[in-house]
């Protein structure tokens, strides 16, 4: 059982915090028909992080956040500029900007010396959840041992803080987010500053993406922005419940995915393990699939009312 604490407890916690942090802003992105923005952000984060590393020489949390948030803002401006100057539809403008920025980030990463830190291309895609082990732990009692706690991987605190920040963001700005997501014109007539609010949502998503990114990689970040909120939307017709449910679904997917990745092949008689990030994303996709077929509220507006 001490193996579990050393090897699995921390990655599971990081996975769950990261998943919830991404799922919360994802709810609003999806309802605003901006799910692609989550996708864009998780790509754009890479050049931001690399640039921040090149400038500061560290992978500390704050420079990374600043770099990624800056990159997100640059991306939003570029998307707007391309859309307006080139008269290209927003989806295409986004696609051009985030793939180009991601590719630029990959090139930048290849050409810069990051051997001293945990930053490479593979890492950017899959993360390194499995390697975030707690070497100082000897068992459950280590949770109360201040010396062992110091040895916790910093990613745990980082994702936990991000998760808390997202909860705070959604709770504090709940009403304006809800009003402007439902009816932006009306929100503006009430005096809600919808443009800064929309930007704040994108920046919040970028913060979640950065915090999650280096632990779980961009594949999982994309999945977590979209799958849990979309699944939750099919389970309920109340925004309040949808957001809560999305957090639960994200956490369940993270925990179950990690366990299946680590032990699933073992149960099937294989000795190896599969990528935890990949398995978590796959599980959340499967949950969405099940919800599409079986959830109570999959009826779209416009179809006849149930009664």
């Amino acid at each position: 059982m001490s193996d579990f604490v050393v090897l699995s407890l921390v990655p599971m916690g990081i996975g769950a915090f990261a998943a919830v942090a991404c799922a919360l802003p994802g709810n609003f992105l999806i309802l605003r028909r901006q799910a692609l923005i989550g996708d864009a952000i998780s790509h754009v984060v890479l050049p931001g992080i690399v640039a921040a590393f090149l400038v500061t020489g560290t992978v500390a949390a704050l420079p990374m956040l600043a770099g990624a948030a800056g990159a997100a803002v640059v991306a939003v401006l570029l998307i707007e500029a391309i859309r307006r100057l080139g008269r290209i539809e927003p989806g295409a403008a986004m696609g051009v900007v985030f793939t180009a920025m991601f590719a630029g980030g990959v090139l930048l990463l290849e050409r810069s010396d990051t051997s001293s830190v945990h930053l490479d291309v593979e890492h950017a895609l899959y993360g390194n959840l499995e390697s975030l082990i707690w070497l100082d732990a000897t068992g459950w009692s280590s949770l109360l041992d201040s010396e062992a706690l110091v040895g916790l991987p910093p990613e745990l605190l980082r994702t936990a803080v991000a998760c808390g920040a997202m909860i705070l963001f959604v709770a504090l700005l709940w009403r304006p987010l809800k009003i402007s997501t439902f009816d932006e014109g009306y929100a503006r007539s009430l005096g809600v500053r919808t443009v800064p609010l929309g930007l704040a949502l994108v920046v919040a998503a970028a913060v979640a993406a950065v915090a999650a990114f280096d632990a779980v990689g961009s594949i999982l970040v994309i999945a977590m922005f979209i799958c849990p909120p979309a699944t939750a939307r099919l389970m309920t017709n109340r925004l309040e419940r949808q957001v809560l449910l999305s957090a639960v679904i994200a956490a369940v997917a993270a925990l179950a995915g990690y366990v299946f990745a680590g032990y699933g092949p073992l149960w099937l008689g294989r000795a190896d393990a599969v990528s935890a990030a990949g398995m978590i994303a796959t599980i959340s996709g499967l949950m969405l699939g099940v919800a599409c077929v079986a959830a109570p509220h999959r009826r779209r507006a416009g179809e006849p009312a149930a009664g």
Partner: peptide, 22 residues
């Protein structure tokens, strides 16, 4: 988008934003 996940009363309560605030 009338598919937005909310109830009639919640929509009307949006009209009280200037009273309710954050």
């Amino acid at each position: 988008d009338w598919d937005f996940p909310t109830r009639v009363l919640d929509v009307v309560l949006m009209g009280l934003w200037r009273d309710l605030g954050l």
